Amino acid sequence: MSTGRRTTADATADPGAEILTEVAGGVLIMTINRPDQRNAMTRSAAEQLAAALDRLDADPDISVGILTGRGGTFCAGMDLKRFQLGERPVVEGRGFGGLVQRPPAKPLIAAVEGWALGGGFEMVLAADLVVAGESARFGLPEVKRGLVARAGGIFRAPRVLPQAIALELLLTGDPMSAGLAERHGLVNRVVADGGALDAARELAATIAGNAPLAVRASKALAHHSRTWTDDEAFERQTAYTDPVFASDDAREGPAAFAERRAPQWSGR
């Protein structure tokens, strides 16, 4: 694994792309770029986001991803006009937005300003951490449209929220404020409007400074062990943790601590 980190922005060449990408400091920022349509998801945007997420997992110089929306809205869900014409913003094997069915192995932070509705909220639920502007709103309004939140909302919302709160979202279709989402553990940090991306960058920088093998193993085990008993977890965790303890990074971490220097992670 390369130990170098790009510190200058590596932005998408095409400003008209529906997903803009930028790399800096080991962090890949993916921005939904349909502000005039409140960043409603299209098939093209889903395919572009899936490609960006593949890059996140494949590039050894990238440790963390951030997903956000341009123009003060995260994502208003699928583009209903295109839905009426038969388009589905789904990528085979990856689901809605190219994300919800197969999130990346590396950490993903959702930086939310404004509305995160329907599939947009389901993409938030597929992320690992959430930073939100204080006016952000989260909702699953599918029942108001004769639909259901089948891009993960029906089962992920009750995992991260109290059952009654999740059911209120699902059955009324009414949105939840950022403050309430934070109180119930859905959102990690609420910041001033316009500050979600900067706060997400700070969080991502902290994660990117840690050993990449340990970070990926921690995320994978935390997710996969949700339905395991304690006995099963202690037995099964070795497949995730033994490679970490046997790695070069496991030797580098204590050595750097003892020598009072920053660790140089190799990812091996």
Rank of each mutant, 00 (worst) to 15 (best):
S2I: 12
T3H: 05
R5C: 14
R6S: 14
A11I: 14
A11P: 01
D14N: 11
P15A: 00
I19A: 07
L20R: 14
L20M: 10
T21D: 01
G25L: 09
I29Y: 01
T31C: 02
P35M: 04
R38C: 14
M41R: 02
S44R: 15
Q48W: 02
A50K: 07
A50P: 10
A52V: 09
L56S: 11
S63W: 01
G71P: 14
G77P: 01
M78I: 03
D79P: 03
D79W: 08
K81F: 06
P89F: 05
R94D: 01
G95Y: 04
L99G: 04
L99T: 01
P104D: 00
A105T: 11
K106S: 04
A111P: 12
V112H: 12
A116Q: 07
L117A: 13
E122F: 08
L125K: 03
V131C: 09
E134C: 11
A136H: 00
K144G: 03
G146V: 06
I154H: 08
A157V: 06
I165S: 11
A166C: 02
L171W: 11
G173M: 03
D174H: 10
D174Y: 01
S177C: 06
H184I: 04
V187L: 03
V187W: 03
N188L: 12
D193H: 07
A205V: 04
L213F: 00
A214S: 13
A217R: 08
S218I: 03
K219H: 04
T227G: 12
A233E: 11
F234A: 04
R236A: 09
Y240W: 15
F245V: 13
S247L: 05
S247T: 02
A250I: 03
G253I: 07
G253C: 08
A256V: 10
A262F: 07
P263G: 13
R268S: 15
